[in-house]
Amino acid sequence: MLILIARRAVMSVVLIVVSSLAIFVLMSFVPGDPALTILGEHATPEALQRLRESLGLNRPLYEQYGDWLFGLIRGDLGTSIFSGEPVAKLIGLRVGVTVSLMVGSVVVIAVFGVALGLLSAVREGWVGRVVDAVSLLGFALPGFWIAIVLVAIFAVTLRVFPATGYVPPTVSPTGWLLSLVLPVIALSIGGITIIAKQMRDSARDVLARDYIRVLRATGLSERRILLLHVLRNAAVPTTTLLGLTAVSVLSGAVFIENVFVLPGLGSLVTSATLRHDLPIVLGVGVVFAVIVIVINLLVDLAYGVLNPKARVVS
């Protein structure tokens, strides 16, 4: 187990170095002058020069990268080109929003996906068809479109939930929950359909296995077989997919935060990208990489618990 965590830790360092290096290398291909892009065409030459120096743009790429990397080790992600604020501080203020959005969605996806999948695996009739139909819709409709429709129905027309904005849990726990409901639904629908489909396929696969037949022949109740044996065995492949879904929820959060005007990392990185504020993009990239690594680690751990064969290998 410790070896696993150590290996993941090494991987995470490599991962952060590789992804940030990729961005730096891309930067070297940038046509034109970032300083000019930032200050606009009417800027004075002095102002441009000052900005270049303060950004370190006049130094070789590897020096810039080295500086950034050393800063990262000290917990310094640089400063925003646009506002001059430390990137670490900007991220610190917003990371909670994105993480609560993500965790909420993954929990909703896991609970509803597994329940619907298991249900449609044993009920061939209308339950299966409903899951099929909803799956198709969830697969076809883009998340941001669903989000806007949710706002139109529940916030604008029915006025059940707030349309946009975020309430920190320290201010009002119920307000916080209410402000998350619509974004979490919008983020979860796609994931639920994916997990439900996988769960149904794995459960059907497990139900056809020899050991299920033998368990039935032993006389065990169908409920016990389903909730103990089928669920646990089908959970093995589903867990892997849930990890991948969690990563795609993170990507989806970027779009959803913009629709609901949530002050998270997604809206931060969107506005930063539109302003070519690369230090922020880099910083958010590091945080996302860390989140992905944590997800992978959790998946590995869950896999080890669920599947005794995997334990021997690791």
């Binding site: 991987m11 991962l15 590789v18 992804s19 990729a22 961005i23 990563v247 993170l250 990507s251 970027v254 990185v269 969107t270 990208t273 993009v281 958010v284 990239g285 996302f288 990489a289 989140i291 992905v292 690594i293 992978n296």
Partner: peptide, 9 residues
């Protein structure tokens, strides 16, 4: 494991 969306941004 690279966060695709961020590199795309």
């Amino acid at each position: 494991s690279v966060p695709t969306i961020i590199i795309t941004f």
